[in-house]
Computed example of a mutant assay.
Amino acid sequence: MKILRSLLFVPGSRPDRFEKALAAGADLICIDLEDAVLPENKLEARQAVIDFITQGNHNICVRINPLSTPLGVDDFNALAQVNPAFIMLAKCSNQQEIEQAEHILATTRTNSSNGLNDTKLIGLIETIEGLENAKHIAQGNRVSALMFGGADMSAELRCDFTYDALLFVRSQLVVAAASANVDMIDVPHINLKDTEDLLDETRKVRALGYTAKAAIHPNQVSIIHQAFMPNEQQIAFAQDVMKAVDGPDVGAVVVNGRMVDRPIILASQRILQLVEAAS
């Protein structure tokens, strides 16, 4: 997958917005069949997403209802047949859900030319059980990212839905995602008017180790991308590092008077990927 900085949600009950979301500039859009869709509209929304994918729009994510529910199982079985790039598992709580999803994907024939399914999974961690099992969830063979669901998590923890109150949870999820070398997506900023706070919060989670932040409005995407853009000094040093090495396994070298080894080389590679994504 190309580098992921932003994930833009769009309600599954609003197919008129699907194309607009694709044009918003986000690295990935996620059509939501869970919280954004009223119960009486769930089946209609699922069919709208399936129709959209079968029209050739495979490079999207779909958030389904929890796999612990019959509705979620039906969502997953139906989507497995049309092979979206990603399926997000709402309220993902344990490794068994990942194994269940991977089994369905491995045994479902699709309408692709070879009939195989290459859908990846994103585990949405928004419960205490999910947090406790996050490291195991991230290790799934098809898991490409974890996402932090802050609203539900704060309700379970009985804490404020603020950056500081949830810093402990965010930090644990960074460790879980990094240990499996998968992306870590932060919860959307729900105040659409406070762009300064969105920029500040995104910079904070980037510094913490998050690789992306979700958005709920197209206007948030450019701000998120701005927050993930390295500064001039970081870019210059990363360029110097990559000029001095042939790959991440060259051992230790000195660049501009600083000792550089594999971790610094990998960080420099990501900085230059972020620059390329911004261009």
Results as ranks from 00 to 15, higher is better:
residue 125 I to P: 10
residue 222 S to C: 12
residue 48 A to K: 06
residue 111 N to I: 11
residue 142 R to E: 13
residue 189 H to S: 13
residue 92 C to T: 09
residue 254 V to N: 10
residue 24 A to D: 05
residue 136 H to E: 15
residue 254 V to C: 04
residue 178 A to P: 01
residue 112 S to D: 07
residue 53 I to M: 01
residue 113 S to D: 08
residue 132 E to W: 12
residue 34 E to L: 10
residue 56 G to E: 07
residue 138 A to V: 03
residue 237 F to N: 02
residue 14 R to S: 14
residue 73 V to E: 10
residue 105 L to A: 00
residue 81 Q to F: 00
residue 139 Q to M: 14
residue 140 G to K: 03
residue 220 Q to P: 08
residue 190 I to T: 13
residue 151 A to T: 11
residue 274 L to Q: 08
residue 61 C to P: 02
residue 45 A to E: 04
residue 213 K to G: 02
residue 270 R to C: 01
residue 113 S to G: 00
residue 52 F to K: 12
residue 27 D to M: 09
residue 274 L to C: 02
residue 20 K to S: 06
residue 163 Y to N: 12
residue 151 A to L: 06
residue 249 D to P: 07
residue 117 N to T: 02
residue 195 T to H: 14
residue 231 N to G: 03
residue 6 S to G: 08
residue 186 D to A: 11
residue 137 I to C: 02
residue 177 A to W: 07
residue 211 T to R: 02
residue 231 N to M: 09
residue 246 D to T: 15
residue 134 A to C: 01
residue 24 A to Q: 10
residue 113 S to K: 15
residue 205 V to H: 03
residue 10 V to D: 03
residue 20 K to Y: 01
residue 49 V to P: 09
residue 35 D to Y: 00
residue 47 Q to M: 08
residue 275 V to C: 07
residue 53 I to S: 01
residue 70 P to I: 07
residue 231 N to Q: 08
residue 274 L to Y: 12
residue 106 A to Q: 10
residue 85 A to V: 01
